[in-house]
Design a protein around this nucleic acid. Structure first.
Lengths: 218, 218
DNA sequence: GTCTATAGGTAGATAGAC
DNA sequence: GTCTATCTACCTATAGAC
């Protein structure tokens, strides 16, 4: 394989990069919409505007493609989790947490739905990640929240339920987009809508947990 | 069809009822787990412990079976929505709303996931329901919430975002059960866990929206 | 690297024996 | 009412021409 690439490395690498990108984007959409089983390589290939066999040539198998997409999403997720590691001001940290999660829903709605579909199906590919890496992250945050409560910086609410509250209420705008649009009668949510929702959620969560908001509440 | 049923109506009706019930239960699980396309009649039949053709005999087609399941879930949903029509005390109504939704997640997790899967896939079968019936219900509630805000009974938060907050945070425990169990390290959530979460969500939402809680907050 | 042809399996649905 | 056999279509994956 390394040998085959040698003679056309210059633009061959470029072609590969372009095609793989197209496949990944198309696959994210299709897997998000129909789940792992319901998605077909045919549909992915059509949306990527490539012959079906090229999808398998670049990605190896349906399974490998799916795992690769999940891993890309986990990488984005982890990058975001690291972003909000400041541990001093509860209001600031919780606001940043909510805002980051909302931006994830905004920037990667297909990825969010892909993740949701995987969890909905019982998380067959993500069991390890959930019970390992992610669990540890949650517990480390939970410890911080508990300390804040002890120091009287917020109410003594269960930190894990609080994290789930923030996750669910922010992801909702990606995962249940079809419902949100149907009920609000909009064709799409704009940046201004997302900003308004972010403010709403920040306000309710911070006030609801007895945390003081750093910015003036509108 | 009516003729064929006549001679064995007594226990024939009973058999039909029993088989249909088994098929519906199995199908709800399988559709919830794999989505409409990803679900196979073979798997549904196996879980219902019936031959595949019997599933089609009783249900007509995969599509009809799926629609029937969605309609049953909508019926449960509507029954719950009617339950909380008391429009006097904000704290009481919002508490009852959160509690009802949590009980839906508890009693019908597969149905909740089936609904989530349908929305995740762009709600191809439920567009009409979302843009019609459900939208009207949301708007009627929103009007009530706005009136409460005007009368100073709660903060002037956007009522639609509030409804989405309650929906998302309660459904999370059915739809993302796999994640919740993975992170908490539990094998299942008990009635006591659900009660604790209900209290937590009620407390945060009511306090966060400036509504006074009817019961003493623990 | 790219794409056609096709193998081997399973999908939803139906016909017809019992 | 029940179930086997089977139809056609589509699925993933691979072999091999170019």
């Amino acid at each position: 394989m390394a040998k085959a690439m040698q003679y056309s490395e210059q633009e061959g690498g470029a072609i590969r990069q372009r095609n793989e990108k197209a496949i990944m984007a198309a696959a994210e959409r299709v897997f998000a919409r129909h789940g792992y089983r319901g998605a077909s390589l045919q549909e992915i290939a059509e949306q990527a505007e490539l012959p079906k066999s090229n999808v398998l040539y670049y990605m190896g198998s349906k399974r490998k493609l799916y795992v690769r997409l999940l891993e890309r999403m986990m990488a984005r997720w982890n990058a975001m989790l690291d972003d909000i590691s400041a541990e001093d001001d509860p209001a600031e940290v919780l606001s940043a947490f909510i805002r980051s999660k909302m931006q994830m829903s905004r920037r990667h709605p297909e990825g969010s739905r892909l993740f949701a579909s995987e969890i909905l199906g019982g998380a067959p590919f993500l069991q390890e990640y959930l019970r390992g890496e992610l669990r540890e992250w949650v517990q480390s945050r939970a410890a911080v929240f508990r300390e804040w409560a002890e120091r009287g910086l917020m109410d003594p609410v269960d930190p894990v339920w609080l994290i789930f509250l923030i996750w669910s209420s922010t992801q909702h705008y990606a995962d249940f987009e079809a419902q949100v649009l149907g009920i609000t009668g909009r064709e799409a949510l704009g940046d201004d809508d997302l900003e308004e929702i972010t403010r709403f959620l920040t306000r309710v969560v911070l006030k609801g947990c007895g945390v003081r908001h750093p910015e003036p509440v509108t």
